[in-house]
Computed example of a mutant assay.
Amino acid sequence: MKLDLKLDNVKAWFRQANFYVEEVYNAPYRSAIARAQREQDDLFMLLIFSEMMGVPNPASYYTLELQPLLMERFHDWHLRMGMEHSPLDNFKCC
């Protein structure tokens, strides 16, 4: 009984020590991670609201040249998912 209690105390101490070590290690990076998250959220909101207001998405123009490269990957993906043909009506790949 005493051995179990001591073992539980040691485990609790190691859990607490691990928590503090992780906090100390991650502390310098928190602001950079939060800033990157805010920038991603801002970009997402900009794209969503611009599309809602009827402004065309500028990313489609810049990614148009990637379409031939993505066709093969899309074809492999829908075959892996068990679909014989493309699930998109306006996007035929096979």
Results as ranks from 00 to 15, higher is better:
A32L: 14
N26E: 15
C94E: 05
R73H: 07
L46T: 11
M1W: 06
M83K: 10
E39D: 15
L5H: 03
R35P: 02
D76W: 00
M1R: 07
W77K: 09
F91P: 02
F19L: 10
V55Q: 01
R38I: 04
M71L: 10
S86W: 00
Y61H: 08
D8I: 10
R35L: 11
M83E: 13
I48F: 08
L7E: 10
S86A: 03
H75W: 02
C94D: 11
A32K: 10
K92F: 11
R80Y: 01
K92W: 09
E22P: 03
N57E: 00
D41Y: 00
D4Q: 04
Y25E: 13
N26R: 15
P28R: 05
M83G: 03
S86Y: 00
E22Q: 12
D42M: 05
V24C: 10
M71A: 13
R80T: 11
H75T: 04
D4M: 04
C94R: 07
P58E: 05
L46E: 15
I48R: 14
G54Q: 06
H78Y: 14
I48H: 15
R15Y: 12
A17K: 11
Q40H: 07
R15F: 13
L46W: 15
D89I: 05
M71S: 10
A27S: 11
V55A: 00
P87D: 02
Y20I: 15
I33W: 07
T63I: 09
P28C: 07
A12G: 05
Y25K: 12
L79C: 00
A12Q: 06
S31A: 13
D76I: 04
R38K: 12
A17Q: 08
Q67F: 07
L43T: 00
M71Y: 15
A27M: 07
V55S: 01
K92Y: 13
H85V: 01
D4L: 05
R73V: 14
D4H: 04
L47P: 00
L5C: 01
E84W: 01
R35I: 10
D76E: 12
L69N: 12
P28Q: 05
F74Q: 01
Y29K: 07
E39Q: 06
L7V: 08
S50F: 14
C94Y: 03
R30H: 11
G54C: 05
M52H: 00
M53G: 08
A12E: 09
L88H: 08
V10T: 03
K6L: 08
Y20V: 09
E51K: 09
R73D: 08
Q37D: 14
L70K: 09
H75I: 02
K11E: 14
S86Q: 01
L88V: 10
S86N: 01
P56K: 04
A32C: 02
G54A: 05
R38F: 03
R30N: 11
D41M: 09
D89H: 05
Y62Q: 11
V21Y: 14
D4S: 04
G82C: 03
V24F: 02
E23Y: 11
P58M: 05
P68K: 04
L5R: 06
N9L: 12
L43P: 00
M45S: 12
E65F: 07
M71P: 01
E23M: 13
Y62W: 10
W77I: 02
P28H: 03
L3F: 15
Q40I: 04
Y62T: 12
F74G: 00
C93W: 04
L66S: 10
F44L: 06
L88C: 06
